[in-house]
Design a protein around this nucleic acid. Sequence first.
DNA 1: CCAATATACTGAAACGTTACAGATTGCCAA
DNA 2: TTGGCAATCTGTAACGTTTCAGTATATTGG
Lengths: 347, 347
Amino acid sequence: MDRRITKKDDDASDKGRPTLKTLAFMTGLGVTTVSRALKDAPEIGAETRRRVQLVAKQIGYRPNRAGVRLRTGKTNVISLVLNTEHELMSFVSDIIYGVTEVIADTPYHLIVTPYSRSQDPLDPVRYLVETGSADGVIISRTQPNDPRARYMLERGIPFATHGRTDMGLVHPYHDFDNYAFAGEAVRALAGKGRTRLALVTPPVGLTYYRHTVNGFADALSEVGASEVPFNTVSIDQSIEQIRMRTAQLMRRKDRPDGFVSSAAAATLAVVAGIEDAGLQLGRDVDVVSKQSSKLLHLFRRELLVVNENFRLAGSELARAVLGWIGGADPGTLQSLSTPSEVLPYRG
Amino acid sequence: MDRRITKKDDDASDKGRPTLKTLAFMTGLGVTTVSRALKDAPEIGAETRRRVQLVAKQIGYRPNRAGVRLRTGKTNVISLVLNTEHELMSFVSDIIYGVTEVIADTPYHLIVTPYSRSQDPLDPVRYLVETGSADGVIISRTQPNDPRARYMLERGIPFATHGRTDMGLVHPYHDFDNYAFAGEAVRALAGKGRTRLALVTPPVGLTYYRHTVNGFADALSEVGASEVPFNTVSIDQSIEQIRMRTAQLMRRKDRPDGFVSSAAAATLAVVAGIEDAGLQLGRDVDVVSKQSSKLLHLFRRELLVVNENFRLAGSELARAVLGWIGGADPGTLQSLSTPSEVLPYRG
DNA sequence: CCAATATACTGAAACGTTACAGATTGCCAA
DNA sequence: TTGGCAATCTGTAACGTTTCAGTATATTGG
């Protein structure tokens, strides 16, 4: 009953932002009550609850992240782990935008955790887990047997992968159906009478490399076309490398008359290489390419494109991680995006 | 003297990560001593200091961010504020990579704070400042009279702008010299005998719009060329818009014979528009464009390009913010990047 | 009418860190 | 010897939050 006004209590007029103590002072309640009232705890009277929430809204109370984090361990952070040393990763911004779109009306912040080519990809993940810097993690460049996924599964930290794994372990992911993409691409080329096809593969070692290669191979035998090996090239090589190797290939007598390319930037290089060899797109050879922006048709209208939506990927990944953090079953947080049909240039 | 081992003291074997208390227990010192020893405080004996630091390193001690943040208010976070609703912001990933490069060996984390077109650009900044979510902020799309810069200056929170302001207020920035770029571009076109030039401007309202327009105008009169107004177009319009408007312009009798374009994506659209009108790049018209990736020459080898390095921009911006946080004079944290010469295609 | 119980609220402790105000020791000058 | 002082080290409190273990009051059942 002796609620004396001490030095500690009169901070309502302090310069800082309002805290639970401020709210407690204003409402005449204890901090505990205020805390519980704000999160709709059942043991707080309905009227008190409304009153506290009203005052909180009025003065613009925002929980102090450090306080919450220190007490509960909850960071309200999700981390996007990125390899920062690959030539052309324009889609990265799309993924980021997709993620922020989803977390916009949650208390979550997005931190970007980079790692360089020289580092073990496990390093940044280990750092995040060891320092408890995030409640959830999103990784890309996923491998069939991915040590990062295994590690996080062991440590029990929620995560989602961009691309699937193949370890018999279940976890959230979002993936583009690259098997279907490669298949559609081959069929489209076959439809144009192309019979000798080359594949510009994803980086060897990543899961979607296998998916793409398999989709390509299966469709080849389905349509009765043959493969022209082009193993010296993959999309994370430099533009110059791809261009040069393509030109070499196209100068050979047994050159392909069709390409399937797994990335837009690589496609630019491939086309340049084709033209370096004195050949013409649409006449001597056709190219089907994935793209994330809508720009390839401006580049050469003869290109055939399939769109991959990375913004959607970002959103799905964010949704998946948040879902897992929220206690959902990881097995239900997996999604696969079906490629659009193969699109020719139109007007 | 009666240092009894209580329940609280024996947490050295706890499952959690080591804290100052763990370190104190292991070294037999007090937490205060350990804390100060780790930050090289002068009142700690040299040997003790070494001993503490050794043990800390051995067991992999990492300060708890929440603890530090709660106690000191220091978040060890810098925020990059981004507009997430502009067509093609492939350079965003470059800026991010540039930033992460610089903060990699600091305790700082990078958070991405988005805002959409419909929002007041001041909103995210206000949020960051009010919630104390970051020690420093990086903003882009800077305006001559930028309310965000003014706001942060008032609140005393360190920041850096990508692009300059023009309010008579001093703050860190990094900018590309767009005045010089536009001038060089005009001179290059004049060197090719082009005399009727159009400018594809940056977004109206941003500071570098003025810089670009002025550089363009001054160089025009310098070389004695004339401007073909093209005010209906700026680089943050849609590809389709730019393409259509360019085609319209090029079908007119008084069409330009040269373009200066402030962004690579817009350039693709402009070239498409030129070709829609039945004209040919290099013969009927020349185009000088800025680019951040190295891809424009693959698109059309007749293009003339000037490179803008956004990764560098990110690094400079990060350095500037960290500098200001570290107490440096904001006036010394300004940098301007000089454009490369205008580059024609080479092999 | 009393005890049991439900309802509504509360203070204290803890998370990990740093700042403040000592405390202990040894040494030197007077 | 004593007072002063420098060199080292230490406990306590505080940052804002949530959880634990209550307390006080009203309500119910017998």
